[in-house]
Write a protein that binds this DNA or RNA. Structure first.
Lengths: 233, 233
DNA sequence: CTGCAAAGAGGCGGC
DNA sequence: GCCGCCTTTTTGCAG
């Protein structure tokens, strides 16, 4: 990887046209020669999580008199960089890529809830990621009347889109011969609920929102483990 | 800004828990002392547009024996970095932040189309961002029969979601007393169309897809300017 | 300030 | 490869 601290300007042409005016930036070049994938990032030195400009993996690099040109012909993208002043420059051949382990993303949220659907009522888990023609339902359950209950889990607030999505799921389940004559209903599970989504849910009596935070789930797992230990004794 | 090329590992705790195993990374520290906003980025040296870990603006920095600890108490986030080997390190006080000008994002796509709705048929523009109870319609037009035509513009491919969204718009317009007895229809405009979305559109005879690329719009603007010049002569 | 949708979104998994 | 969906999304813009 080559790192350059510089006063520079840039122009990107590809999916849009963008012009970056002269300023202090940090340019990261993941050139193939130094073990990189050919991607490029231009970060502002002062602020901003996302890069101001970038190029995808597989870009070619060309050094010009005034700076650099990066191109990705297959994707029709090009990034020109004009360097006015170089403050510092370093490069290093990278040999070890780290691995990132995440806990608490939506997948785990859903995993934990799958183990504890009884939290949401008298339910039994039937399937995870149950495929309908209009997309997969996170959790499909059955209630005491053996009616299907679709559960959509979100790590963030439920928005109106999620509610409409649920309606399509319910419609698809209603059409499915596997659930003939069983009236489906839906439960939206999340730490919070957008107001517009709440109004929407209230309009349908087969929909329900249940507030569950990740901390609550973690808490419950501890309790379950405790109970298990009591049993074991 | 401080830039460090190093072999390091990290742990983030906040919105999730994340562990970054030992590897070659580029650490960007936008410390206040050197003109930064207090944000931190850890980029892999080999690959990946998004950073592996990061901290938002306003984080505090503490140098420890083995590395760094960044904290954002108000947001309850913390990033610990353990540095095993430093390959290179640089810092620079940033004084000039660049400005980024973008052309061709969805807003501009819609802007240009608003000037040329006749492209899509015998239409007259009535309103932009017309508010319905279920969200704003990009462009609302009238056809020769004075019937409302909702236009949804996407810079990327139309997906089934966009089609369902359009159906909700049409329903809302149909309910609106302002358009009493006028039957609405919808046009989805984009450079391309997903297959599932296409099947969906074919099921409704009040929906239509029109392919328009950004290049076509740019082209058309040039032509319009030419015609204007001819008139001026 | 809050809510909401776009982003040059990227990235991952499923089919 | 297309498609669907999550992201520590971030960011910008409206009400």
């Amino acid at each position: 990887m080559i790192v350059i601290l510089a006063r520079a300007s840039a122009r990107y042409q590809g999916r849009i046209d963008a012009e970056l005016s002269l300023g202090d930036v940090c340019i990261l070049i993941r050139d193939i020669e130094s073990g990189g994938d050919g991607s490029v990032l231009i970060h502002d030195m002062q602020m901003g999580i996302p890069p101001r400009n970038w190029m995808p993996a597989g870009s070619s690099m060309q050094v010009t008199e005034g700076g650099y040109v990066f191109e990705h012909e297959k994707r029709g993208e090009k990034l020109e960089v004009w360097v006015e002043t170089i403050y510092a420059s370093q490069s290093h051949y990278s040999q070890l890529t780290s691995k990132l382990a995440k806990l608490g993303a939506e997948r785990e949220f859903s995993d934990r809830l799958a183990l504890q659907v009884q939290l949401l009522g008298d339910l039994v888990l039937v399937a995870r990621e149950w495929r309908t023609p209009c997309g997969p339902v996170d959790l499909l359950c059955q209630d005491v009347n053996e009616c299907p209950v679709a559960i959509e889990v979100k790590r963030r607030a439920i928005d109106p889109n999620a509610v409409w999505q649920m309606r399509r799921y319910l419609h698809a389940i209603g059409e499915d011969p596997a659930w003939k004559d069983q009236v489906p209903r839906g439960i939206l599970v999340a730490p919070s609920l957008q107001k517009a989504a709440q109004r929407l849910i209230e309009q349908f009596d087969d929909l329900e929102f249940i507030r569950v935070t990740f901390d609550q789930l973690k808490e419950l797992e501890v309790q379950m483990n405790d109970q298990q230990e009591l049993k074991d004794d």
